[in-house]
Design a protein around this nucleic acid. Structure first.
Length: 636
DNA sequence: AGGCAGTACTG
DNA sequence: CAGTAC
DNA sequence: GCCT
């Protein structure tokens, strides 16, 4: 029995290995494949969590290390450099060597590494930074500069010929920055970047400075002030595949990624379905990012090495056998088996339809009894998001998986009339609208919203006066707009840095990962998910450190402004997460922050879960359950 | 007709 | 436990 | 509401 189960699990992983082949070294799929070895060893350990690690778990326990091995550890966020492209790293680990091509590059760094032991050189020695301003810095900025220095940054006290990079406070404009510089200085040929560039480089390795998000406010990118990035790329051309995250999605829009069976690919982002602002995302970054990607692929032979060493090929046989013995599990039924589909958001011709369908979903979502109908609308919308052509007729629509007899005509209606009667109907019903509004409050669902509407409340202000609010709901109302505002990627990084900074003061060995849509490469996120782990540590240990030290410290410094849920100890269970809100210094907008306590052995499963997206997770779990297994955030 | 992911936290 | 969130 |  036990061996059967093990075998079944092996097969499951073989399928995941197979996915490596389908996956495109970006987003969810490689996360799962990279994490799978960590996941593999034990599923029952939850009950034995506090016991010592069994020998069979060694692989799991060491897996993140293995993943990290080929790249120099980044001290600021040590773990960050590992699993971003787990597929790649895993493959490298399996072939037991750094690919020759990247060996060369890394050897070039060896010298400095001995000078700065245990530190990864991020900034090559020829770079010299002038920070603007360089006085009156916040302590956070100061610590970031220190960190940069530890990673090879040379700092200039004032402007000189040696300066290669001028790093400007992200809130400063170009003209403000220029005022800080000596009159005569005309920084031609000097790269001007904003603070984010340094921060992201610290986190993920040297970033290409020639990207929009690193541009100094008010700079036009092509001025003489903004040198091209070629000099940046030379010293460390391959840093990108050390990322813990996918690059922002839009970059690959131009790439064609043929589907296995003509059918559309993965489900859409939750972001996509929940928030249409996503869809207007930076078109202007696309070309740039696309070019960057091509450039990197071209410049980085390591990528080809990885392809050659692709281990998935050896599982081909298994895959075929399994398929024939499991006819039901037709490949196309599981979105988690599909390659990530890019080319959705901005360029999708079905945008209007998608938006309206998602509004339908939101309406049904506000009604607990209609959760499945809501789910169907969301899935239909995400199916449309994968279409490359406009779906205009009922017949076209009905052919798409996930769109059936009821939604298909609605799609035609939307395309021909530009509106959906059923939706207008709901929107014209004030009670309906109010219910939807209320259910958007954090801590309020369909049941509560309906009850309040029934009780005659009509506005959020009404609710504020209502005494029966839970503390969380009150926060949800007070910060209704805050929590609905998307968080730019750069700000997610800032939150991560602050947490990491506090973390390091507590225990150098604590590691953190930013998960969620950030990890999938989204240009913005709805909330911030931070996983905290430590080699060899169990849930209790992480929980204790975080709750006793980290959270209080972050509260004290005014970063954490609210606690929404922090769990409680029971006989058997250790709290596994903390949920709350944080604010960046000098800002006022509250952000939803989740901190997850991840036992070292569960890192693989946790990364799968907390990278998502939702549809991917649900699909993968469904697949597991069809195979008589269960997948959750702790393991398989 | 029955399933649709699986778990954690609050009150 | 129901409701809510992830 | 869709799929099996």
């Amino acid at each position: 029995m036990a061996s059967q189960r093990r075998k079944a699990r092996e097969e499951f992983f073989d399928r995941l290995d197979q996915l490596d082949d389908l996956s495109d070294s970006e987003t969810q799929l490689d996360t799962s494949s990279g994490a799978k070895d960590a996941l593999r060893p034990d599923s029952t350990r939850r009950s034995t969590r506090s016991k010592s690690v069994k020998p069979s778990l060694q692989k799991a326990a060491s897996s993140p290390q293995v993943l990290t091995a080929p790249v120099p550890p980044v001290t600021l966020l040590p773990a960050a450099s590992a699993p971003g492209r787990p597929t790649a790293s895993l493959k490298r680990a399996r072939s037991d060597a750094v690919p020759p091509s990247s060996k060369l590059k890394r050897n070039a760094k060896r010298k400095q590494e001995t000078v700065v032991p245990a530190q990864a050189l991020i900034f090559p020695p020829e770079m010299c930074f002038l920070f603007v301003p360089n006085r009156g810095l916040t302590s956070l900025q100061q610590s970031q500069i220190d960190e940069a220095e530890k990673h090879g940054a040379r700092l200039a006290a004032e402007f000189s010929k040696n300066v290669t990079h001028i790093v400007v406070d992200s809130n400063w404009t170009l003209s403000q920055a220029l005022e800080e510089l000596p009159d005569k200085c005309h920084p031609t040929g000097i790269t001007m970047v904003n603070w984010t560039w340094v921060v992201e480089s610290l986190l993920y390795g040297l970033r290409d400075s020639d990207q929009h998000r690193f541009r100094v406010k008010g700079a036009t990118g092509t001025t003489s002030l903004h040198q091209t990035s070629s000099t940046d790329k030379r010293p460390a051309p391959s840093t990108d595949h050390d990322l813990m995250v996918a690059e922002p999605k839009q970059r690959n829009v131009g790439q064609t990624t043929p589907q296995k069976n003509g059918r559309a690919a993965s489900e859409a982002d939750p972001e996509l379905s929940r928030n249409e602002t996503d869809k207007n995302a930076q078109t202007d970054d696309q070309d740039e990012l696309d070019l960057l990607q091509k450039e990197m692929d071209k410049n980085d032979p390591a990528i080809e090495d990885l392809m050659e060493h692709d281990p998935s090929s050896k599982f081909e046989g298994n895959y075929v056998i399994e398929q024939s013995s499991n006819g039901n599990l037709e490949h196309g039924s599981f979105s988690c088996m599909n390659k990530n589909e890019r080319n959705r958001s901005s360029s999708n011709p079905n945008q209007v339809t998608i938006r309206l369908l998602n509004q339908m979903a939101e309406i049904y979502d506000a009604n607990t009894a209609d959760q499945w109908r809501a789910r169907a609308f969301k899935q239909a919308a995400s199916a449309l998001a994968r279409q490359k052509e406009l779906v205009a007729t009922e017949e076209q629509a009905a052919k798409i998986r996930g769109i059936g007899a009821s939604i298909a005509p609605k799609i035609e209606e939307i395309v021909t009339k530009g509106r959906l009667a059923r939706l207008d109907e709901a929107n014209n019903d004030p009670l309906h609208k109010t219910r939807v509004l209320f259910s958007r409050v954090y801590g309020v669902g369909g049941a509560q919203a309906a009850a309040w509407v029934a009780a005659g409340y009509t506005t959020l202000d009404d609710l504020k006066r209502y005494v029966g609010l839970t503390p969380n709901q009150r926060i949800g109302i007070e910060h209704f707009d805050d929590f609905e505002t998307r968080i730019p990627r750069a700000e997610v990084v800032q939150h991560g840095l602050i947490v990491d900074h506090a973390l390091k003061q507590t225990d150098q060995e604590l590691k953190m990962y930013i998960g969620g849509s950030f990890r999938r490469g989204s240009p913005d996120s709805g909330d911030i998910d931070i996983l905290i782990t430590k080699e060899g540590a169990g849930m209790e240990q992480i929980q204790t450190v975080v709750m006793d030290t980290l959270i209080p410290q972050l509260k004290q410094q005014g970063f954490i402004v609210a606690e929404l849920a922090s769990g409680h100890w029971t006989d058997k269970e250790t709290p596994s997460k903390w949920m709350g809100a944080s604010v960046l210094p000098g800002q006022s907008i509250w952000r939803r922050l989740d901190i997850l306590f991840v036992p070292w052995e569960e890192l693989g499963a946790a990364l799968i879960y907390w990278t998502g997206n939702d549809f991917f997770n649900r699909s993968l779990r469904l697949l597991a359950s069809r195979k008589k297994m269960r997948l959750n955030q702790h393991g398989l």
